[in-house]
Simulated assay, not measured.
Amino acid sequence: MNNLIQLRHTLHQFPEVALEEYQTAERIKAFFAPLYPDFVIDKLGGTGLAFVFRGEKSGRRLLFRCELDALPIEDLKSSDHQSQIPGKGHLCGHDGHMAIICGLGERLAQNRPESGEVVLLFQPAEETGDGAKAVLEDERFAEIRPDAAFALHNLPGYPLHQVVVRKGTFAAGSTGMTIYLTGKTSHSAHPEAGLNPAQVLARLIQKLPELPKQVENFALLTLIHADLGSLAFGTSAGKASLSLTLRAFDQDQLEHLIELVKSSAIKEASNEGIKVEFGFVERFAVSKNDPALYPIVAQAARDLSLPITEKSDPFRWSEDFGLFSQVCPSFLFGLGAGENSPQLHEGTYDFPDELIETGVNVFERIVREGI
């Protein structure tokens, strides 16, 4: 495992954020070169990579996915592998996830499955919600479309090596949404000559957080940012915007919440003669685990004598892997990163090296159980 730890440390030192993972991809390609995969797809969905290991007989095709990108957050933990790129850091553990998939590649190179195929996918731009969509829309994805897809995520706050599973929704779907309000500027001495969206903005700030109550089961609307006019005391504002994040555990309910926000904004704006437009960013599908894959993951954990915990409720955060569950049976599970570990996206977070071997072992067992 020392080579995998060293690989993770190198990736940690040179993080690249979404859509910029060029050198990261080159390092992964260099790692796989001596493993002689049977098929390679380069620049998949941008900077993505796929390595295929084939058995001698036909069979199921399993896909294992990890993420290439880091975060635009300063790495604050002093170590011999601290990020060398100012303002960027692998503070979500994607460096560790990549090391795990690389370790699985080593195992497959030494002992290919007897039948079927295993696809090792390194996906770009997970943090922005752009990567899975780009990979799935790449016409070459048809060459590796799997019968089942698996992914893991390290989970601070859970005991080290604990396997966290759940049937159905594992993590919420979410989207960033901005409401743009356009009226008309006027002299601040004559506000009646313009259309100031201030009152519409104020009413939306009050009313929108109540909308999730109209959605069945869990839904959440979080106000993120508001903007009105500019700091010009002689001018009555003519523009405003309100940004929010929407979350739900069901994809249809998330779409319903979006429509409720649109309807409310349109109604409030039209009452004042204000033009309204909408923008969306960081759209994440609900991560939904196929119940038929649950026994495979659970058995892999039991075979390795790893503790298993059943999550009673889905996680409120989102994961770009959710989009895969819309095109094939998929399963996302967690690996405990330590009860005292800093949380994901914190400046002092660092993926625990001892999880690499655990992740490799679990994925290898899934290959043998599921192929």
Rank of each mutant, 00 (worst) to 15 (best):
M1P: 07
N3T: 11
I5Y: 06
H9W: 05
H12R: 12
F14N: 12
A18F: 11
T24W: 08
P34M: 14
L35S: 06
P37H: 10
V40T: 15
V40A: 15
V40K: 15
G45W: 04
T47S: 13
T47K: 12
F51S: 01
G59T: 00
L62C: 07
C66A: 15
E67I: 05
D69M: 11
E74W: 02
E74K: 13
L76K: 15
K77E: 12
S79R: 05
D80F: 11
D80I: 10
H81R: 06
I85S: 05
P86N: 08
G87Y: 09
G87W: 04
K88L: 04
H90Q: 07
L91N: 02
C92G: 10
H94L: 14
G96E: 03
C102M: 07
C102D: 11
L104V: 00
E106A: 02
A109E: 01
A109P: 02
P113R: 09
G116V: 01
V119C: 04
V119M: 02
Q123K: 12
P124H: 10
P124W: 01
G131P: 01
A132E: 07
E137Q: 15
E143H: 06
R145W: 11
L152I: 10
N154V: 12
Y158M: 08
Y158P: 00
P159Q: 14
L160M: 14
H161S: 13
V164G: 08
R166W: 09
R166F: 09
R166S: 10
K167F: 06
G168D: 11
T169W: 10
A172G: 02
G173M: 08
I179C: 06
G183D: 02
K184H: 05
S188W: 01
S188Y: 09
A189L: 05
P191W: 03
P197F: 02
L201R: 08
A202H: 12
I205W: 04
K207I: 13
N217K: 15
I224V: 13
H225P: 00
A226C: 14
A232P: 00
F233E: 12
S236D: 02
A237P: 07
T245G: 05
L246Q: 05
L246E: 09
L246R: 07
A248W: 08
Q251A: 13
I258W: 03
I258A: 06
L260N: 08
L260A: 07
V261T: 11
S263C: 09
E268N: 11
E268T: 01
A269H: 09
F280L: 10
F280C: 08
S287L: 04
K288Q: 03
A292M: 07
A292R: 04
I296P: 03
R302A: 11
L304Q: 10
L304S: 05
P307E: 12
T309V: 15
S312R: 15
E319H: 07
F324Q: 01
F324T: 00
Q326Y: 10
V327H: 15
S330V: 01
F331W: 09
G334E: 01
G336T: 03
A337W: 05
G338A: 03
F351K: 04
F351L: 00
E354F: 02
I356K: 02
G359R: 06
N361D: 13
